[in-house]
């Protein structure tokens, strides 16, 4: 009963933004008027906010420690099946059915297997996650796009004393900013550590029910940003 009631209450509504359009909104690819309309809906819609949260988690995904084996296994299998993938696509009605690769498919299959073997060598020759030498921008992003924050996130019983996050490989310093909900910066600091202590004057600005934002950016040796966290929200719980 409760489950059905909540499902009825929380399922997406007819006015929810279709996922393709939501993706273009996230990419900043909508025309200004369209963008304003979508923004107004998203601001008030938990469903579209949840969809955007998943999209951002996907685009900022890094392989976590507990999933390395599964991902390694899955990528190896994908590379072994590359011929099937392209064949499956042809079954879906692609115009490529009559392409010149049909005649040399066995050779391509052999090439795919060889590539998988070579790729696996580069990927897994040590314990640390490695990538092939011909990786592109996105593969690099996969490794270091996101800083995972530890605390604070969500409602807090006490005003937080510290901001903490997970280390990022290659970072020489972290830039931490505390902001109002309109993104106006209240306080910022650079540190080489993976936590900072909030000064008393800053903690005094954390009052019950007031939502604040914070973000960490990891900066590499070339003094260029190499990763950043999402903009995290927290507040001191209402009293």
């Amino acid at each position: 009963m409760e489950k059905e009631l909540l499902h009825g209450a929380l399922k997406p509504g007819p006015d929810c933004v279709p996922i393709d359009e939501l993706g273009r909104y996230a990419d900043g690819a909508l025309a200004p008027q369209e963008r304003a309309s979508v923004a107004a809906h998203v601001e008030a819609c938990a469903n579209c906010q949840a969809e955007l949260a998943l999209l951002r988690a996907f685009t900022g995904a890094t392989v976590r420690d507990g999933e390395r084996d599964a991902v390694r296994n899955g990528v190896t299998r994908l590379r072994q099946r590359e011929s099937e993938i392209f064949a499956d696509a042809r079954h879906e009605g692609s115009a490529r059915t009559k392409g010149p690769f049909r005649a040399i498919r066995p050779a391509l299959s052999l090439a795919a297997v060889l590539l998988a073997v070579v790729g696996s060598f580069y990927l897994f020759k040590s314990d640390a996650p490695r990538l092939p030498s011909n990786v592109g921008r996105e593969t690099e992003a996969m490794r270091s796009l996101t800083v995972s924050v530890r605390t604070p996130v969500g409602d807090q019983v006490e005003a937080p004393e510290r901001f903490e996050w997970q280390p990022v490989s290659g970072a020489v310093r972290y830039h931490v900013a505390l902001m109002e909900v309109d993104r106006r910066e209240l306080w910022a600091i650079d540190t080489s550590d993976t936590s900072v202590t909030l000064p008393a004057a800053v903690r005094r600005q954390i009052v019950p029910s007031k939502t604040l934002l914070w973000q960490v950016k990891a900066v590499g040796a070339a003094d260029a940003p190499i990763a950043e966290s999402g903009v995290e929200r927290f507040r001191l719980a209402p009293r």
Partner: peptide
């Protein structure tokens, strides 16, 4: 269409294989 280079697509897909497999695993 008949002359498109599959290596371009393979390169494109390989950039994202870990991301997609990790997401599917989650």
């Amino acid at each position: 269409a008949a002359e498109r280079s599959r290596p371009l697509v393979e390169e494109l897909f390989r950039r994202h294989q870990s991301r997609v497999v990790a997401w599917c695993y989650r």
